[in-house]
Nucleic acid binder design. Structure first.
Lengths: 298, 298
DNA sequence: CGGTATGCATAAGGACAATTTATCCATATG
DNA sequence: CATATGGATAAATTGTCCTTATGCATACCG
């Protein structure tokens, strides 16, 4: 289909030499030696079967054949150069993040603004899908996923262990005179009592999980929603403190007990190992790791 | 000056792969293996920092970045291909011959027509200059020169030894009752008696060259001119028979004596060794050598 | 009018990119 | 479910491309 093409490296060298009218200057521009330019021109001339330059003393000039060839070649390389540059910067300009809903709404949404402030030229696109993204098949730069961090071929950075502890509104806590013992929790409405986190936490707290039995099921399925219900005073929710840092700070939620449990899972930043040095990848990595480092210091 | 360019080989492979939507097909077109295509695409993706293809089952499709890049790249390569093809055929289409005047007018002019019949697409341009052409500095494909055939770096083919013998019009010969002895020549006007060829020929013929002394000098300097004068019956000319084959054949000139002398010089076809396989070079070489082979058989 | 500097050509050698071979893997297809 | 198709990958090989070192011709300068 495509016409027979000349040796491309030689063509590139020819283009520069034609533009400069000098092998030495072309070599400078291309960052190679004059000998290499001379060699490549000869390669091209051998291939086309006719000289492209006349070797005049202290300068070279294009032959007729060279004159016919040069303008089109220059134009073609300008085209390639422009397309390459724009694709390259365009590619830098869009960051596609695949993330689980929970992390997006509980953590990212409130903070992504500061990343965008720091990188005004970089548009961020979210793709919140529950499936684990396949980087080979979907146009996604990086992902934030829950899991155990064992994904071969992918670079992973631990962001956040999914620790959890009961949380509720201060008003609801006051309604029963405050919470002294873990069992006090069972005197209040429990948001999503079927969540295994409740069983685990109560067990680790030394309380019986029996009290959960027979409760109304109100499976909400997302910390954001459950947290909202808790803030509204509708009950006690089992939440990850890191996701509700601001609510805890301003008193919309309180964490009555110190005990933090973990199911061993965590949120990870992941991306294809091979792309670790792409500017937008490393920009986002630096930012998010710094965010977590800062919150860990508090 | 020129914008930073992508790796060109990889770009070429990308272009084919984008056009086919398949690495395997691209490999076929380019005459390489699928593995090589896969490798080159990866090189390009590493360089640009973002994937160019999505690897879907049994086919690959362009990512956004790939879609942005592909059309311009295809266009650029089409440009290069077209320019290359036309320069290549254009270069084939013009044959520049540097030749000495004598050979051009006495031999080539009458026969070049048959070469052009055989190669209708090939335009022939003559450059008749007395200097020996410098192939590096002038746009000349091949040359026909007199000399001893010792030109380093150039391919040479012996065309014709410069043999010579007296020739005259039959009418002039009849005017003195025919020529029996070489000395009979001296009873007729001699065209260019200063030419050393006369001295050499008369000497080798066993005649004294004394008879040349004191003759009117009519230096004409070119066999074509001297031959014309001889045909017109103005005198006896010392000519190269090979240059006057048709005149001898149709009786406009006669060669009264068998004796052929030679000064050791000859006409040679010469061209840069490196270009021996260029189509137009070998076409002309075949033709001219065949012409001489044919005339030698007669 | 010679000496020097500039620019290109060439040969030999080496570095590294490109390619092939040989598998492997996933998935569409029959 | 077996097979075929299409791509990825690792290791080894090949070959291009480039550099170093040098030579040569010519323009420029004192």
């Amino acid at each position: 289909m495509a016409a027979q093409l000349p040796p491309l490296q030689a063509t590139r060298v020819f283009e520069a030499a034609a533009r400069h009218g000098s092998f030495t200057k072309a070599a400078e521009e291309l960052g190679m030696t004059q000998a290499a330019v001379s060699y490549q021109i000869k390669v091209l001339e051998d291939r086309i079967g006719t000289p492209l330059f006349l070797r005049r003393p202290r300068q070279v000039t294009l032959t007729e054949a060279g004159q016919r060839l040069a303008p089109a070649i220059t134009e073609a390389f300008e085209l390639i150069g422009a397309a390459w540059a724009s694709a390259r910067s365009g590619a830098q300009g869009m960051l596609s993040i695949s993330t689980v809903q929970t992390f997006a709404s509980n953590w990212l949404a409130q903070r992504i603004g500061s990343f965008q402030m720091a990188h005004p030229g970089l548009a961020v696109r979210f793709d919140t899908s529950p499936r684990f993204v396949d980087f080979a098949r979907e146009e996604v730069d990086l992902a934030i996923r829950a899991g155990n961090g064992d994904w071969p071929g992918l670079a992973t950075h631990l962001l956040l262990r999914t620790e959890f502890t009961p949380m509720l509104s201060p008003k609801l806590a006051a309604s029963i005179g405050g919470l002294k013992e873990p069992t006090d929790l069972l005197r209040l409405p429990i948001i999503d009592p079927d969540d295994p986190w409740w069983t685990q936490w109560l067990t680790e707290a030394g309380a019986s999980a029996e009290g959960l039995k027979g409760r109304v099921r109100s499976r909400m399925g997302s910390q954001a929603v459950e947290g909202g219900a808790a803030i509204a005073g509708q009950g006690v929710a089992m939440l990850t403190p890191a996701f509700f840092a601001s609510e805890l700070a301003d008193g919309r939620l309180v964490q009555p007990f110190e005990l933090l449990c973990s199911d061993g899972h965590a949120y990870w930043l992941v991306y294809p190992e091979a792309r670790r040095n792409a500017p937008k990848i490393s920009a986002f990595r630096s930012w998010i790791l710094a965010e977590f480092a800062a919150s860990a210091e508090e």
